[in-house]
Every structure is written in structure tokens, then in C-alpha cells.
């Protein structure tokens, strides 16, 4: 069973008013378990909108969205999702460990289980030792890692990430890419990842979905045939450059449309 099945999904904002926006048009996409899908496309083409539709934060104007064979709404109620945004969105009144414990708290785990699981996750994102720090005492990259730990807390079947590393510098970003790749391998989670960076998309993904400028449509899907696990060496392989070039060309076409 596929993790996500989108059929003929359309999204129009303010459809009744004069300034209506057709954000997405006829989106069809199927995502299999364990895939890492990147969404790439010009600004305003509807990548975030697509992510929020899958996460049932907004409802489509038309079309069907199935997540793990259920409606997206049911999947949200079953807490199948983990979300990471461009900003870490950590709660400033909670220490790092308490932030990671939040989804576990909402699920009604016992206090000791919450702490045990949160410690494991903080170790996974290499934040052990920072349990009792407050978010503002951490760097941007560390905050984003805490946000990833929080998103992984309830072992989501589907991780939705909207430009999670968009605000980081190049060096930190490459490091975070390695980390995320490792986490993806260890947890076997299906990930949908929005990005503006071609190298990042190629390095991380199994497939890259290139979207056209508004109204957003799927222009092309690039398969990334790079062996896993990937590492520093991956960025020097010929296949890596070929894929990058392919995506770049499609992206150019997307912008011209």
C-alpha cells in the first residue's frame, strides 16, 4: 500500500472572491513506503500548499488524498504525521527535552516513557547534553535538529518538511543533510521534503518532483539513482552531477512556463 496517493488534486484559494488564486492544478502522485520525495519549483508554485494538503491542515478544492489508505483527516487524527517547518517553532517556555516531549505528552505517554524516548531522540540528532537548555540558548542548526527530534517523537509514518534548512548557512546545511540522510536510513520513515536547493534535493531524495510556476503542476519527476548510504563521496560521483543538471534544466523550464 502506498503511503500517499494524490489523485486529481486541485487547490484554489478564495475561489469565490475576485482575487482567487489557483495554487495547484491536477496533481497526481503516488509515494511508496520509505521513499524520500523532494518538491522543488519556483517560489509561489504551491509546494507548501501541497505539503499542507497532505498534512490535512487545509482541504483541497477537488480531488482525493489518501494517506496510508485512509483519508488525510483520519491520518491526522491517528497522528501519522511529523512536521518540520522552515522555522524551528520550539516553544520558548519549554526546555529542549520538554519540547521534544510535547507530542508524547499529547498522546498520553507516561512521564518516564516520555523522558526515555526524548533522550533517545536527542541522542539521534546529536543534542545530548542540551536537554535542559532553552531554545534561545541553541544555535539555529541545533534548534532545527531539536525540531526534527520532536517530529520523530511519535514515530510518524510520514514526515513532512517545509524548507527545514532554508535559514541555515551552506556548511551547516550540508552537515544537516548528512544527519537527515542518516536519520531517514535509521528510522525508515517516508519523507516529503520541500526545498529550493538542487544539491540538497539530489543528495537526499529517491525522487525529485519538479513543479511549474503558478498554477502549480507536476512538470517532471526525476529518479535519483544514487546508491545508499550516501556521504561526502556522493557529491563527487558522476551520476550526482548528471542528476543535478537534469533537475536544473527542468527547473529552468518550470520558471519559463
Amino acid at each position: 500500500m502506498s503511503v500517499v496517493a494524490l489523485s486529481n488534486v486541485n487547490m484554489t484559494f478564495n475561489s469565490s472572491s475576485a482575487n482567487k488564486t489557483v495554487a495547484l492544478k491536477e496533481i497526481n502522485l503516488t509515494i511508496e513506503p520509505g521513499e524520500f520525495i523532494s518538491l522543488i519549483g519556483p517560489s509561489g508554485c504551491g509546494k507548501s500548499t501541497l505539503l499542507r494538503l497532505v498534512g490535512d491542515l487545509i482541504k483541497p478544492t477537488a480531488g482525493d488524498i489518501l494517506v496510508n489508505g485512509k483519508s488525510a483527516h483520519q491520518a491526522r487524527l491517528d497522528q501519522d504525521y511529523g512536521m518540520v517547518f522552515q522555522a524551528p517553532v520550539l516553544f520558548e517556555w519549554r526546555s529542549i527535552i520538554k519540547n521534544v516531549m510535547l507530542p508524547l505528552e499529547l498522546r498520553g505517554y507516561s512521564r518516564t516513557d516520555q523522558q526515555k524516548r526524548a533522550r533517545e531522540l536527542l541522542a539521534l540528532v546529536e543534542l545530548n547534553g542540551f536537554e535542559n537548555h532553552y531554545p534561545w540558548q541553541l544555535s539555529g542548526g541545533m534548534q532545527q535538529r531539536a525540531a526534527i527530534a520532536r517530529a520523530l517523537a511519535i514515530q510518524p509514518k510520514l514526515l513532512l518538511m517545509d524548507e527545514p534548512f532554508g535559514a541555515l548557512d551552506e556548511m551547516t546545511r550540508e552537515y544537516m543533510n548528512l544527519e537527515l540522510h542518516k536519520i531517514w536510513q535509521e528510522t525508515q520513515t517516508t519523507i516529503i521534503f520541500v526545498t529550493h536547493s538542487i544539491p540538497e534535493a539530489v543528495f537526499l531524495s529517491t525522487r525529485i518532483v519538479v513543479m511549474s510556476a503558478r498554477p502549480g503542476e507536476i512538470l517532471h519527476i526525476t529518479n535519483v539513482d544514487l546508491p545508499v548510504p550516501r556521504g561526502e563521496h556522493t557529491r563527487e560521483e558522476a551520476a550526482y552531477f548528471e542528476t543535478e543538471t537534469e533537475v536544473r534544466e527542468w527547473l529552468r523550464a518550470a520558471k519559463q512556463k
Binding site: 499542507r52 491542515l57 491526522r76 497522528q79 511529523g82 517547518f85 516553544f91 517556555w93 510535547l102 507530542p103
Partner: peptide
């Protein structure tokens, strides 16, 4: 932050949970 509210929604948090764990502390 609207993102913080979306985060709570993504966990299917109840109104009550959103009030006590997000809105009130904020």
C-alpha cells in the same frame, strides 16, 4: 505563531490542549 498552531493541529491536539500547552503559556 501560525506555524505553532499548525504544529499543534498536525498532532491533532484538542482545543483544550492547544489552550493549555500553547496559547496560555504564550
Amino acid at each position: 505563531d501560525p506555524m505553532a498552531l499548525e504544529l499543534m493541529h498536525s498532532y491533532a491536539a484538542s482545543r483544550w490542549a492547544i489552550l493549555w500547552k500553547l496559547r496560555f503559556p504564550a
